[in-house]
Design a protein around this nucleic acid. Structure first.
Length: 467
RNA sequence: GGGGCCGUGGGGUAGCCUGGUCUAUCCUUCCGGCUUUGGGGGCCGGAGACCCCGGUUCAAAUCCGGGCGGCCCCA
């Protein structure tokens, strides 16, 4: 089945999102999807807090003059800004933008907050919705006009070195976050022509969707002193001089959830990593005339016991077992415990693993030990499986022909002389996008030549069809 | 940016070309009841739709225009 068709069906049938909201590019989070989202958010929130980031919440609206202060920045976004122009029936004196991103909302406040070197470093984050007037193919969680879960961090530092160090910390935070969710990725320094508007450079994380197209799932921007100069973010040094702060910002969006769904899912539906699954275990009683109460009672006991070690749901709806099996498989619940007459009599339970679609019988008493082990194993298995598939999506190419051959099937690495001209020509020739050069560092010259101009390669460059 | 296709109950559809018994088909879903329960069970009963605005016409799901929404292809 086509990936996009599969994706749409899974979002609907597993009740992640309702796409029927009558505005292009806006969608509704359903309770089940919302819980997954919450758990993903918490994973990142925890990491950010542990590394000294304080959570804040800025307004959604940004005054026009403020948004347009940084010329390069606004040039990168002006085509896609939603404007609020009226208060009731009256046109407003100054238009207000629905934030496409929050730099211009936050940094003027940084300017007020930061007085001296003692106020630095300043590290904040917020989890908010942002708006972009996308003109083409919107897709739930992948390209939306309202990004609902933008987890953005902003930092200010006294020195360039500290800001560089912050970029590395952000890289570590996101790497471990994606690792934790079993999402494979590569990190690349985006080419000059595709960096964040107003940044000195951008590091981006990309994964690959099952259809072979790359998806950007996180970005880190070294802002240098660009924004601090625009918004007058200055501090007094120990020596008593006024200096501009060195800043960074980084963010991940709803696309993380899209990746979890797309990368782990299979032909039966969602396959959720245990950490983010609303239910980790579902108990399906298999009732039999004459033993109904006994079996149900047993199921309740097992639920009690397992609730100590996992999030458990007992499905006692009046439905055939087969139907329930399909229902919970579609929803990606990691483990299913089946309890019927045989299990009651033998004091056992059948445990079904969603990732491998396999059953095994355990004695009832060992369940509380087995379940956490299986959940853990499943988490590892999902990660390994995903990385294996990802490796198959990584290609190496020496010539333009070879790049072209692989470009729809994941990420292609080739040589690059380093010129923008060749980079752009490469994109044109192979009908792909340049993702950039490897980050944190290149392993050395991996390719002899730039396939465009034939000059010696200075870098490894990555190309892919992208979302 | 350019081009094409499409919009009928919650989901998927027939009907549209050739306007009229359309009181709108079938599957699924949902609700109630009985019976079932080891991989999407059966029977009975019930609920639920022509995207919006305008036009043509005696008459519009059907024809025309616009809007909104969705999908696909190319740059």
């Amino acid at each position: 089945m086509e990936f996009s068709e599969w994706y749409a069906e899974v979002l609907r049938d597993a009740e992640v999102m309702d796409v029927r909201y009558p505005v292009k590019g806006l969608y509704v989070w359903l309770p089940y999807g919302f819980e997954i989202r919450q758990r993903v958010i918490e994973k990142l929130r925890k990491r950010l807090r542990e590394t000294g980031h304080k959570e804040v919440l800025f307004p959604t609206l940004i005054p026009e003059t403020q948004l347009e202060k940084e010329a390069e920045h606004i040039a990168g976004f002006e085509d896609e800004v939603f404007w609020v122009t009226h208060g009731g029936l009256k046109e407003m004196d100054e238009k207000l933008a629905l934030r496409p991103t929050s730099e211009t909302a936050i940094y003027p406040m940084f300017a007020l907050w930061i007085r001296s070197h003692a106020d630095l470093p300043l590290k904040v984050f917020q989890i908010v919705n942002t708006f972009r007037y996308e003109t083409k193919h919107t897709r739930p969680l992948i390209r939306m006009r309202e990004i609902t879960t933008f987890k953005e961090a902003h930092t200010a530092h006294a020195t360039r070195e500290e800001a560089e160090e912050q970029v590395r910390e952000a890289f570590e935070i996101y790497s471990s976050f994606f690792e934790d969710l079993g999402i494979p990725y590569v990190a690349s320094v985006r080419p000059e022509w595709d960096k964040f508007p107003g940044a000195e450079y951008t590091v981006a994380f990309d994964t690959v969707m099952p259809d072979g197209r790359a998806l950007q799932i996180g970005t880190i921007h070294m802002l240098g002193q660009n924004f601090s100069k625009t918004f007058d973010v200055t501090f007094e040094t120990e020596e008593g001089d006024q200096e501009y702060a060195h800043m960074t910002c980084y963010g991940v969006s709803d696309r993380v959830v899209a990746s979890v769904i797309a990368i782990h899912g299979d032909e039966h539906g969602l396959v959720l990593p245990p950490d983010v699954a609303p239910y980790q275990v579902v108990i399906v009683p298999i009732l039999k005339k004459g033993m109904r109460e006994e079996i149900l009672q047993r199921a309740r006991e097992v639920k009690e016991e397992l609730s100590e070690v996992a999030r458990v749901k007992l499905d006692d709806r009046d439905m055939s077992p087969g139907r329930k099996f399909h229902y919970w498989e579609l929803k990606g619940v990691p483990l299913r415990v089946e309890i019927g007459a045989r299990e009651v009599e033998e004091d056992t339970a059948v445990v079904f693993r969603r990732d491998e679609m396999e059953r095994e019988t355990y004695s009832a008493s060992e369940l509380p030990d087995v379940v956490p082990e299986l959940l853990d194993e499943m988490k590892k298995n999902l990660r390994e499986r995903a990385w294996e598939r990802f490796e198959k999506f990584m290609h190496r190419a020496e010539s333009l022909e070879e790049v072209r051959e692989f470009v729809g099937d994941g990420i292609v690495e080739t040589g690059w002389c380093g010129s923008e001209e060749c980079g752009r020509k490469l994109e044109e020739e192979v009908e792909g996008d340049v993702l950039g050069t490897p980050y944190p560092e290149e392993k050395g010259p991996e390719f002899d030549r730039c396939p465009v101009c034939g000059e010696p390669a200075e870098h490894t460059i990555r190309v892919a069809k992208t979302y």
